[in-house]
């Protein structure tokens, strides 16, 4: 049987002076898995969880269920076993961005890649 699913990932996360702790859902629906199989999702950051603007950078963290995702990336954030048709997790993003930091003005960004595999 062909295995399939639909995963909904956060499009982006935007920090501001007043919003430094942000939650975003990660959801999987319409799951079709063969018996004994498991769906896994891990998250990696293009810049090792640093938002960049040229040479200037701002650290941020991502946590799942109070566990921080390490800089080395590729830690599973959601695991769903055959028999379950949907699943979700809350991703928590936080930064210590402060006006006292001497930073280059502009837009800082990073890109997250969600890798989905069935094993």
């Amino acid at each position: 049987m062909t295995e399939s699913y639909v995963v909904t990932i956060p499009a982006s996360v935007s920090f501001t002076d007043t919003e430094k702790n942000i939650d975003r859902p990660l959801q999987v629906e319409n799951i079709v898995l063969n018996e004994g199989r498991t769906l896994k999702i891990n998250v990696s950051s293009l810049n090792n969880f640093k938002m960049k603007n040229g040479d200037s950078e701002i650290d941020y963290k991502m946590m799942v269920n109070a566990t921080e995702i390490p800089e080395k990336n590729n830690q599973d954030v959601l695991v769903i076993k055959a028999g379950e048709h949907s699943g979700w997790a809350i991703l928590h993003f936080l930064t210590e961005l402060s006006k006292d930091n001497a930073l280059l003005a502009g837009r800082y960004s990073d890109t997250l890649t969600f890798t989905v595999s069935i094993v």
Binding site: T2, V7, P10, A11, R24, Q27, W88
Partner: peptide, 23 residues
């Protein structure tokens, strides 16, 4: 008790749905 839809406010950008297949 929470639902994933509770986490994201209606004003925030909606997530992206991505279709996946194993083979």
């Amino acid at each position: 008790a929470v639902d994933p839809s509770d986490v994201q406010s209606s004003d925030e950008e909606q997530g992206v749905a991505i279709s996946g297949i194993s083979a």
